[in-house]
Amino acid sequence: MIIVQCTKKLAGELNAPFLSEKPQQANPLYCWHAHIFTYNRRKCVLVMNNSTRYNFMMYGLVKSDFTHFGELLVKHISENMLADEIDQALVNRYLDNVGESSYAPTSDRSIVSQINEMVSVAQQIMEMNMAKTGDLGINKVNRFMNKYIFMKLPKLYSAETMRDELLSLS
Rank of each mutant, 00 (worst) to 15 (best):
P17I: 05
K152V: 04
L167V: 09
M58V: 13
K75I: 04
W32I: 00
R53Q: 05
C44S: 11
L10T: 08
T52W: 00
D96V: 01
M126Y: 06
N49E: 05
M126F: 03
L72T: 12
L167T: 06
N40P: 01
M81E: 03
D164L: 10
E13Y: 10
A26Y: 00
V91R: 07
C6G: 12
Q124I: 03
S102Y: 11
E13D: 05
L19P: 04
T52A: 02
R41D: 15
M81V: 03
L167M: 11
L72N: 13
L166N: 03
G134Y: 02
M118W: 00
T161R: 02
E13K: 15
A16F: 10
K132N: 08
K22W: 00
S120D: 14
E127D: 14
I125A: 05
Y39D: 09
S20E: 14
K63W: 10
C44R: 08
I115T: 04
T7Q: 11
A83I: 04
H68R: 11
N40G: 13
S158I: 07
G137I: 02
A122K: 04
A83Q: 09
D65S: 15
L136R: 06
I2L: 12
V4C: 13
V119H: 01
T67I: 06
M130A: 09
L10V: 09
L61K: 09
E13I: 04
E85Y: 08
Y157W: 07
L169P: 00
I3L: 04
T38K: 13
R109A: 10
